[in-house]
Amino acid sequence: MSVRQSLLAILNQGPCYGYQLRAEFDRRTGSTWPLNVGQIYNTLDRLERDGLVQKADIDADGQNYVEITDAGRAEVAEWLGSPVVRTMATRDELAIKLAIAVTLPGVDIAQVIQVQRTATMRTLQELTRTKNATADPESSEQLAWLLVIDSLIFAAEAEVRWLDHSESRLTRARAAGLADPLPLNTDVPKRGRPAKTVQANA
């Protein structure tokens, strides 16, 4: 999550102190990802180290204000103008679980899928209830919050659709006599790295 850029974008509107930044972040994201104030200060330290923010005034209440630098403004513009790249390297626990389960003997995959589907549908129901309890957007905060809820709803829906798809793919594979479990391979790879000559011949 781009806490760093989010805080920087908020600071782009004017100097803030730590607690104020946390409140601003919360109200703009419906408190979906609560930050503790320690995270805020750590992030501010790194932003200052990188020359993106600098210390500003201390007010009468002793609040230490931080302000954005020109380099910081450039980073905000860069952030808003570029896409968020989802890295394929992130391990999807559910995809790995299903992929492994399919290869195991004696596992009722349909049941594994159904357990997940029920859990995800329950999440979807709860998100929908929360959304339904929210009045039509009358303020920017409400609208921001609904956008966040919608994104969680669509992500849950995508998971259910993927589960449906996986189940029907599996049903077809089984009907075609495929999708047999994979027994342990007795041709066990040697310990250590494979020798280069073997790799070249393979």
Binding site: G30, Q114, T123, Q125
Partner: peptide, 18 residues
């Protein structure tokens, strides 16, 4: 084969406030 019933309070939504 299964049933899903929405519970009043969700662990998922514990951190969320409408």
């Amino acid at each position: 084969v299964d049933e899903s019933r929405a519970s009043a309070v969700s662990s998922l939504l514990a951190g969320l406030q409408a």
